[in-house]
Design a protein around this nucleic acid. Structure first.
Lengths: 194, 194
DNA sequence: TATTTTTACTAACAAATGTTAGTTAGAGAA
DNA sequence: TTCTCTAACTAACATTTGTTAGTAAAAATA
């Protein structure tokens, strides 16, 4: 008999918590809410997690680790800067589509991390932003991009992909692939006719 | 003696509440937090407001009313579609810069509105989005814009301006005017060299 | 002036919060 | 079997929550 290892309880708790945090916010979600979704009493969850804070911590840093890894990978590929930026945009959208609730939590609820970890998180994020902005600046220097303010370009891009979570429902008129293509067109070619 | 009418207490409460909601979220902000910022006991605020819900309601609908009014105004101006879209983007950024905390609350905490008002709010927002998307679609039909998916274009734009709150600090290297110009360039011309 | 209204206060409320203590049923190892 | 560990439970805890009642000072109105 082949065993299908079902995910350990801890992971189920983290997943359900992410969904609830996304919908109701960290402060708006109680341990009893999460427990109800998992099918367990609130107190029982403490056999699997240390605290509510730790749930948030786990979700946020798992996502931020993925982002950092993505960036480092893309930086080392032999691509033009345009291609590198495209690759990063695609990774953002893919992660959002595959791991929506967790990404959403990492984007919105990170600020409720306890103090020490909060600075660690913002440091990681700034590092990511710095690396991404450097790619844009290099692309400008290489003549691939227009001479825009790299910071503005960076945040326009990050913002545009970040909000996919709000209005993308899988299986609706647009596929994830088409969504990617359209967003990339919009960001790299612009709205106006050339 | 000239009297400088200082704002009534209700308005002060709404402003301080908006700042706190922005920083700590609706659920994360207690009535006592707000009262502390205003310089008053929590119970005393009930002479000026009806409930915590009503504070959120006031903030959210004041902002959504402004957006709707903006749109209707721009729709009736004799401008090209490109100019209309530019005008709306500018209005978004200006409102964000002038009324940051309230805009932020209307963007993030609207989901905590009590049920009846929540549907009213989302209806208003959908109406705004529909009108904005129609301008984009008309611009495409008129040959002013590239043939992009209007919905994707709309949300890319809304997202890009929405996140100004996160990283724009007045008096930093970029002025509000420059910020506007750069974002509009990015969205209408695109990042890549033509 | 006298009277009414506004606005602040303290005290208290019931409900909800995150979390701990103590217990018990079941699974795996000895 | 016997022992140990895991993971669930119920009960309870100290706080914190939004809000109301009752009251007193101050301001506005007559």
């Amino acid at each position: 008999m082949t065993k299908i290892a079902k995910p350990p309880k801890r992971q189920i708790i983290l997943e359900e918590a992410a969904k609830l945090f996304k919908d109701k916010g960290y402060g708006g979600t109680s341990m009893r809410d999460i427990a109800g979704q998992v099918g367990m009493e609130a107190a029982s969850m403490y056999n699997h997690i240390k605290s509510k804070d730790e749930i948030l911590d786990s979700i946020c840093f798992r996502i931020s680790d993925v982002y950092i890894a993505h960036l480092q990978e893309v930086e080392q590929l032999p691509l033009t800067f345009g291609e590198k930026v495209r690759a990063l945009i695609r990774l953002h959208i893919q992660l959002m589509v595959e791991d929506g609730p967790a990404v959403s939590v990492a984007n919105h609820d990170w600020k409720y991390l306890p103090n020490a970890r909060l600075t660690e998180f913002t440091t990681a994020r700034r590092q990511y932003e710095k690396g991404f902005a450097a790619l844009i600046a290099a692309g400008i220097a290489a003549g691939e991009f227009q001479t825009v303010n790299p910071t503005v370009a960076l945040f326009t891009i990050l913002s545009a992909v970040r909000w996919v979570e709000l209005w993308f429902q899988p299986g609706r008129s647009l596929s994830a692939q088409e969504l990617e293509d359209h967003i990339i067109t919009m960001l790299l070619k612009g709205l106006e006719q050339r």
